[in-house]
């Protein structure tokens, strides 16, 4: 075992191994930093900015920031949470996020972050974009209305499935998710239900047909526990070998 170095996160000492990012080290130590486009199994993307922290006084995305010995990181402070709230609000205003009619409600990371950050309204003027569905595939529905452009499906399809089914196209407000088929339709791609890309959508874009309400509303993932508690369970932990971790029982 290498000599462990540490940094400070909201006053707690977080150990890290060389090569780890601030986010990886924090989650491994049982310290939650809010995030949306970050997924423990994929290369950090650094695009959603929900994980923005202050590191030695500078704001930076903690999912791409390499951990450094002695770094002083501020995350769970009102200034950062207020910025995160605004980011979540902008995402809600930009797409068509109608939670009451979304089958991902209760399992949605964007919604769960909204709950955790106490976002009561999008605040901004809603854009209500026109984004037709792609229901062409017999087993899979694509509802682009909810896409937040996190590229998790893009990363999963290329890095794990080796398929490149998904990509982002266009720039700025015109940026949107596309599929790799001349027709532009999912049915003409080689996507399969068993693909990793089927499992990673944090919102309700990539949906398996005919199972939408197999778990009732109110009994779903983030109905049970807030995302701040759930995300720590999902991440690889430094002390997982023993099965228990004192830091797991963190702040509610």
């Amino acid at each position: 075992m290498t000599d462990t170095q540490t940094f400070q996160l909201d006053g707690a000492t977080v150990p890290f191994e060389p090569g780890q990012t601030v986010m990886q080290a924090a989650l491994a130590a049982g310290q939650y930093i809010p995030h949306l486009c970050y997924h423990p199994e994929f290369k950090p993307h650094g695009s959603c900015k929900l994980c923005t922290v202050k590191a030695n006084g500078h704001t930076t995305a903690s999912c791409t920031m390499p951990a450094e010995a002695g770094l002083n990181v501020e995350s769970n402070v009102e200034e950062m949470n207020s910025l995160r709230r605004t980011l979540v609000q902008m995402l809600f205003a930009e797409g068509n996020h109608f939670c009451p009619s979304c089958e991902k409600s209760g399992d949605c990371k964007l919604q769960a972050l909204g709950y955790d950050l106490e976002v009561h309204t999008a605040g901004f003027r809603h854009l209500y974009p026109d984004r037709p569905l792609d229901a062409s595939h017999p087993d899979i529905l694509l509802d682009f209305n909810r896409c937040i452009l996190c590229e998790l499906c893009v990363r999963a399809s290329s890095e794990v499935d080796g398929k490149n089914v998904f990509a982002l196209s266009g720039r700025g407000i015109a940026k949107h998710l596309i599929v790799n088929a001349e027709s532009g339709l999912l049915k003409d791609t080689n996507i399969a239900l068993t693909d990793k890309a089927m499992q990673v959508c944090p919102v309700g874009v990539i949906l398996k047909k005919r199972v939408g309400f197999s778990v009732p509303i109110g009994e779903r993932r983030y109905d049970q526990r807030p995302i701040s508690a759930q995300a720590l369970d999902d991440a690889p932990r430094q002390s997982d070998a023993g099965g228990s971790c004192a830091a797991c029982e963190g702040n509610p």
């Binding site: 809600f92 068509n96 996020h97 109608f98 939670c99 009451p100 009619s101 009561h120 309204t121 999008a122 809603h126 209500y128 974009p129 026109d130 984004r131």
Partner: peptide, 19 residues
């Protein structure tokens, strides 16, 4: 006070907004 999804996001009636 705005109460409920419709008051806050337009809700179900706003699903006609792209038409």
């Amino acid at each position: 006070i705005a109460i409920g999804s419709c008051a806050i996001t337009g809700g179900l009636p706003a699903q006609r907004n792209h038409l």
